[in-house]
Design a protein around this nucleic acid. Sequence first.
RNA 1: GCUGCUGUAGCUCAGUGGUAGAGCGCGUCAUUGGUAAUGACGAGGUCGGGAGUUCAAUUCUCCCUAGCAGCACCA
Length: 648
Amino acid sequence: MAQISLTFLDGNARHYDAGITAAAVAADISSSLAKKAISATVNGAHWDLQWPIDADSAIAINTMKDDEPALELVRHDLAHIMARAVQELWPDVQVTIGPVIKDGWYYDFDRKEAFVPDDLAAIEKKMKEIINKREPVRTEIWDRARAIQFYQDKGEPYKVELIESIPGDEPLRMYWHGDWQDLCRGPHLQHTGQVPADGFKLMSIAGAYWRGDSDRTMLQRIYGAAFTNKEGLKQHLHRLEEAAKRDHRKLGREMNLFHMQEEAPGQVFWHPNGWTIYTELQDYMRRRQRAGGYVEVNTPQVVNRQLWEKSGHWEAYQDNMFIVEVDEDHAREKSINALKPMNCPCHIQVFNQGMKSYRDLPLRMAEFGSCNRYEPSGALHGIMRVRGFTQDDGHIFCTEEQIESETETFIAFLDAIYTELGFTNWAIKLSTRPEKRIGSDATWDHLEAALGNACRAAGHEFDIQEGEGAFYGPKLEFVLTDAIGREWQCGTLQVDSNMPERLDASYVGQDGNKHQPFMLHRATLGSFERFIGILIEEHAGKLPVWLAPRQVVVATIISDADDYALEVVAALKAVGVRAEVDLRNEKINYKVREHSLGKVPFILALGAREVEEKTVSVRRLGENKTSVTSLAEIVAELGKAATPPDQL
RNA sequence: GCUGCUGUAGCUCAGUGGUAGAGCGCGUCAUUGGUAAUGACGAGGUCGGGAGUUCAAUUCUCCCUAGCAGCACCA
């Protein structure tokens, strides 16, 4: 038999017969390793201990101490164990797919009756029984016909469909956990007992479409969280609890920022505190955009259907538009309008007024554009996904040659703003040509490369989302993460030649002929609503001082300090600080607690000493200590702290 | 939009086939207290909306609506 050479991490090599399993290699090293082994890494691939190795390879034997493979296997085996538990409890349930995801796994089932929360406890109990049986996992490769027949006989049509969608030349791997069988590409643990019985928890039940297709059956998905030990799970659950405290919907209520109500679903009622954040942010963006060479415009809310037909939005999005019918006295027909769902067609109307020359390009046009979209009810989420919102929108009209440099300039612009707003952790995604598209491959090659080059030139890595671009051009998405790790697209930049064409935008080139400009749709924050939601969660409500709706509360300890408190507040307001007094007949403990919970960055406490010495006792949010400062000093300090970063 | 769950006082939540309760908050009074809850008293609810079953519905059933989780969608 042919010999192969396996090289270990330490550089040593051993020789074995070709076809040896990783399990046998582990056993050859030591019997304790053979017991502890969970999988191998062979030439960088995650390798089941039962799979044969046929050629010279680099190999490492993994144990539970190797976090990445261990988590992968534990979660993957738990998916199978859960599916087995469910089928043991309810034999009529059909199994579908069950992948590993961040922090755990899920498995989708088809079952007539709905799973209820109490079922989760029963399933967990059954899973623990299965784990305690320490049943061996084994695997075989089957040919397609046999596998299809097997699943047809078993009454598992979803598995048949899965096999039919797997490319014909790929071998099908069957796995058994004890007697329970599933189709799976592996790898898996050696036996069910290797799964930590106290390291997992079933989290929730939700609906999910078979194969992610909303035209097909809705299955029932059970989510689980899993770690290699009890402590890992405990920490995860603790993180979830902490994240819930940062939820912008909860903080929005507690800080009295905004509310929403049944009569206006998906639209925000901004309260004075919340609106202060909003206007402060908008003022900042306005200054930033002016400095960035943008001209600001404003365009209509209610726009006749004809323009949307011409732009192509009517055909694609009419179901998601708010339609406004106007029945004028003398009109023979109703006039059909839509609340604008986006600003670009209107911006082209502005661009089209008067002749434009190549000398006018790039023309950067911005609008705080109030838009309405009839979002599907299930998509609404606090102020992050709403039906009425304002974009910090902008369109850059430019030539094809200017696309790359304009993109690079925009990324630098966005980067500076995200940094000033306290975001360090954001990602760029580059969406490339979709199947249905217009334009030549040569143009797509150029545009995709231009966006990628611009990212690199601006010093940013990016992930590629294959085929996710718009039909008219590639796009960049600037993605931020909320408290529990859900990603939200905030900024965006999209290259578009289609709309200038449809809406007849043109400029006179150096050659005296008419040319069509390219258009870069771009937004920095995206929508104020979503961005403020993210901002609240990122800072857990403790906003940077310049954005905090209430920056300073001057709280009296005794009523004899009232006059001085008013004097202090007046001095702070004079330098532009949002300061309030708290003269209530309450103890200082009470006031400190209340304003700390209200996330006020500075509390100034005033008692007899402060009145006497013309000082203030300063308490900063998040600190338990206080310091005493002269009035003049604190006014200067807080005046500076309250200044937006671009004005320092 | 789809599946499941939920909607009781301003907030967080208990509860029941015989028209409701707590804590916090709010108001009044007393208290002038030095950095995360001073005390007493008091006010406050068509139990999301509509229909049905019933002698009687906040409670059971159905429809609608909104919210939550996930899926689908996101110009």
